[in-house]
């Protein structure tokens, strides 16, 4: 099979499955979620195709969260040790929050650590390091990093998190304004919602589930706006700054 011409076999937003040939020839470059075999670029994940110039990408539709340095996540305290806290990150790996990163205060040796975080607490925390063996270190030092009091937790697919946040956080701030609820979206797919009354909280949960289920639909922001308006909320779509058309895919 001698072939010198380059050809794209798929188009933007196509759903592809592992083993499907995406492009032939050397004109296109394989990005994440695919590999090159001889003359062909072949998908290695189930997802949507994205074309960025000559670079192909597969945006996965599912999959577990993989801890990455710098991500802000919502995690569950699972155990309290002598030297810190063991925390469930909603991924295949647990993380360690050590004493020195846990608080701005000086924590004395032998102090009762449950006064800071107890088993069962949810915390907003940041990943400071991930080793090659995926040992994860966390910190609580930073803006917005804290223990979560009250509210409710819901889980979404980690691959849908960029959709829920939206361009420059437009989606989540729209929902926040409309419902009056406080929302924190962790990169690991855990979302915290707290409102003044339960009705608004439930509406927010419903809205987030809707965004998750329809994440691949185009014009999603308008659809969500319609949905919230049908529930009697006043919605305004936040205006993006000039030149800010990049997506927050972090």
């Amino acid at each position: 099979m001698e072939q010198t011409t380059s050809a794209l076999k798929v188009s933007e937003k196509d759903v592809v499955v592992p083993g499907e040939i995406l492009a032939e020839g050397i004109e296109y470059l394989p990005g994440q979620g695919m590999y090159r075999e001889g003359n062909n670029i072949i998908a290695s994940r189930f997802g949507l195709v994205r074309l960025e110039g000559k670079v192909l990408k597969v945006l996965p539709l599912s999959g577990k969260y993989l801890p990455r340095r710098g991500d802000v996540i919502i995690a569950l305290v699972e155990d309290v040790n002598i030297s810190g806290w063991r925390v469930n990150t909603n991924s295949a790996y647990t993380a360690m929050l050590s004493l020195k990163d846990a608080s701005g205060d000086f924590i004395r040796r032998g102090a009762d650590l449950t006064q800071y975080f107890d088993i069962g607490d949810y915390i907003v925390t940041k990943i400071i390091n991930v080793t090659s063996q995926n040992l994860v270190d966390l910190t609580m030092k930073g803006p917005g990093l804290r223990k979560l009091e009250g509210g409710r937790i819901l889980k979404v697919a980690p691959s849908k998190v960029p959709r829920i946040i939206g361009k420059q956080g437009s989606m989540v701030s729209m929902v926040k304004k409309a419902t009056g609820c406080n929302i924190i979206v962790g990169q690991n797919g855990i979302v915290w919602v707290k409102g003044i009354n339960p009705e608004d909280e439930l509406l927010t949960v419903e809205t987030i589930k809707k965004i998750e289920n329809e994440s691949h639909v185009s014009g999603l922001t308008d659809k969500i706006k319609e949905f919230l308006e049908s529930k009697g909320k006043v919605v305004e779509i936040p205006q993006l700054q000039e030149g800010g058309d990049h997506e927050e895919v972090e």
Binding site: V17, G33, I42, R45, F46, L61, S62, G63, S159
Partner: peptide
């Protein structure tokens, strides 16, 4: 496995 988002060479 593909549905679970696992990286696979092929089905």
């Amino acid at each position: 496995l593909a549905d679970a988002g696992i990286q696979m060479k092929d089905l």
